[in-house]
């Protein structure tokens, strides 16, 4: 008997599957087809303006920094300002995401753009978020052909662009958005929910930023 059969056999014996198996199967199929919404915190509900404001507050509370800009055209300049303020080399790594590519990077002559996955030697990575979550100040990042996940983890500084209209009040709204994008039960290979820069409290419970992931997380909210 295979290990699978042995484990399943024990489970079925204990769970009393058999006579009422059809009912149990129906219950499971139903839940998978229509996931229950559950309890959604009040905190993230309200107007769009409230959501964006809360998102920025919550992100700053977990040591991310935030800049708001009016349009995507302003993003490259904001990135370059950030590099200068932090005394970083004028070079950024990013995926070939078309939202990022459409931005007027060429206006910044001195800025070097590197496309593709990170090799671990990048000071700064730039990603575009699928969504923001106001209740916790979280950004959701999807992997894909133009969105290497390594950019989210290897650079010392991670800059994430998020559209204000994509900032949801709660996690459930973003999950529904994923189901719309990838179809029911579909997912990208990697979905990263990122809430602040990397940290560790493993030595004497003292929280230090920059454990293995980026030391700093900078969010640019567009719109």
């Amino acid at each position: 008997m295979s290990a699978r059969d042995a484990i399943m056999g024990k489970l079925r014996k204990t769970l009393g599957a058999g006579a009422d198996d059809a009912t149990r199967r129906e219950t499971v199929a139903k839940r998978l087809a229509k996931p229950p919404k559950g309890i959604v915190p009040e905190r993230g509900q309200g107007s769009d303006a409230h959501k964006v404001k809360l998102f920025c507050q919550m992100a700053e509370a977990v040591a991310a920094s935030v800049t708001r800009v009016r349009s995507p055209e302003r993003v490259p300049k904001t990135v370059s300002d950030y590099l200068r303020a932090k005394n970083l080399p004028a070079s950024v790594r990013m995926g070939a995401d078309r939202r990022l590519k459409a931005m007027p990077w060429d206006k910044l002559k001195s800025l070097e753009l590197k496309y593709g996955p990170s090799d671990g030697f990048d000071e700064v990575g730039v990603s575009h978020a699928f969504a923001g979550i106001a209740e916790t100040g979280t950004v959701a990042l999807l992997s894909g052909k133009d969105n290497p996940s390594t950019v989210n983890f290897l650079p010392e500084h991670h800059i994430v662009v998020v559209d204000a209209k994509d900032i949801a009040g709660d996690l459930e709204t973003v999950l529904s958005g994923l189901r719309r994008k990838f179809g029911k039960g579909g997912m990208p290979r990697t979905l990263n929910f990122v809430t602040g820069p990397s940290r560790s409290g493993d030595i004497e419970q003292k929280i230090i930023l920059g454990a293995h992931g980026p030391r700093a997380l900078h969010l640019i909210v567009v719109g």
């Binding site: 977990v62 100040g137 992997s143 997912m187 290979r189 990697t190 979905l191 990122v194």
Partner: peptide
């Protein structure tokens, strides 16, 4: 005591066609 941990990551299968990493 965090509202959300820094990284919550969902992994689904291996690298997809065209994926640059994973």
């Amino acid at each position: 005591g965090q509202d959300m941990s820094v990284y919550t990551t969902l992994s689904t299968g291996p690298r997809r066609k065209g994926d640059p990493d994973g």
